[in-house]
Simulated scan of single mutants.
Amino acid sequence: MDFRKLKTFQVVADTLNLTKAAEHLGYTQPTITLQLQSLESELGVSLITRVGKKTYLTNSGKVVKSYIDQAFGILDEMEREINKMKEPYGLLTIAAPELYCNQFLSMGIHSFIAENPQVKLQLFSCDSNEAMKRVAANEADLAIIAGPCLSPLMESQPLGKEDFVLVTTKELFEGHTLEELITKYPFITYKSGSNLQLMVNECLGSFGFQPSSFIECISDETIKRTVLHHTGVALLGSALVEEELNKGTLVELHRFPEQIETSMVVLKSRAEEKNIRIFSDIVQRIWANMG
């Protein structure tokens, strides 16, 4: 079926005026008439009728018009989606833990906006598990996470690694032996089932650390703040506690080198979208320079 005839009929049905339709399409009025007659012959129904000088759609014409509108609507949507893969525009939503939002993504966001001012950025601060859920549900375009991404639907790009550090406050460390800290104070950690909690368990097992009690928190920032209130001990990424270790407010009890892998994740079906590719390239470049 000739798309030109369908488009001609759509314009005629919208305007109900052959002269206006001809002007809109850049055709002569006889050409419009011939295309309509050809379409009617092909479909085997009458699409328009004239009463005096007025043009009306037949019942068949109304049905055909509704389907043509749907078809061209889908084609327009297809064109918009293709354009997303050609030029950056619209909204780009990123999900990441608070640490990455505050310390690492700011440079990437600045560079991206400077190079692509037509794109609006939106940033969600959440834990790694929630970030991956947002990507899976198309509520975020990409995510920066700590720990593994095991979803077969997602593409994961490693950015770097950092140490896991077992820490407590200076006051608790000076007043207790390591054994007392482990047995008398709670271990402050991530909520059960999170990808980082699985890594924590592996590190604790290799160290022979058997906490007597646990406090589960929803984010690493919450864990750090809880530790700083002299509540117990915790295993956190070295980047998160670097400042406190340098100041002496936190003390390193044990270090597990390069245990946390930071990755950027995106749905495989969306990996080639222009916004995502450009932001991904910028983040990888900045992360490499920081290393």
Rank of each mutant, 00 (worst) to 15 (best):
E87P: 00
N83C: 02
T55I: 15
L123I: 15
M132P: 01
I82T: 08
L121G: 02
L57E: 08
C149S: 14
A96F: 05
F124S: 06
P117Y: 02
A96R: 05
E42I: 00
L75S: 06
C126L: 14
S111D: 10
L91V: 14
C126E: 12
S60E: 14
R80D: 03
K65N: 12
N102L: 11
Q35I: 00
P158D: 10
S151A: 12
I109H: 04
P152K: 04
E115P: 00
R50L: 13
G147A: 09
A143Q: 04
G90D: 08
Q157L: 13
Y56L: 15
A96S: 12
Y89K: 13
Y27I: 02
S38T: 00
D76G: 11
E139Q: 10
E79T: 12
L34K: 09
A146D: 13
F72Q: 09
L150P: 00
T49L: 08
L153F: 13
P117G: 04
L39Y: 00
R80T: 06
P148C: 07
S111M: 10
D127P: 07
A136N: 12
T58I: 09
S106D: 11
C101L: 11
A114G: 01
G44R: 00
C101P: 00
E98K: 10
C101F: 03
V51H: 15
M85W: 08
E42V: 00
N138W: 02
K53P: 02
D141I: 03
K65P: 00
P158T: 10
S156F: 06
S41N: 08
V119W: 03
N129P: 04
K120P: 01
L43Y: 03
A96C: 06
Q70P: 00
T28A: 15
G147R: 05
S66N: 02
D69E: 15
A137K: 03
T31S: 07
S66D: 01
Y67Q: 14
S106V: 13
M154G: 05
F104H: 07
L75C: 02
G108D: 06
G61R: 12
I144M: 11
T33C: 11
M132L: 15
P117F: 03
T28F: 10
I68S: 05
A143M: 12
Y67A: 10
P158K: 11
A146V: 01
V135M: 12
E81D: 01
E87M: 12
R50H: 10
E139V: 04
N129S: 09
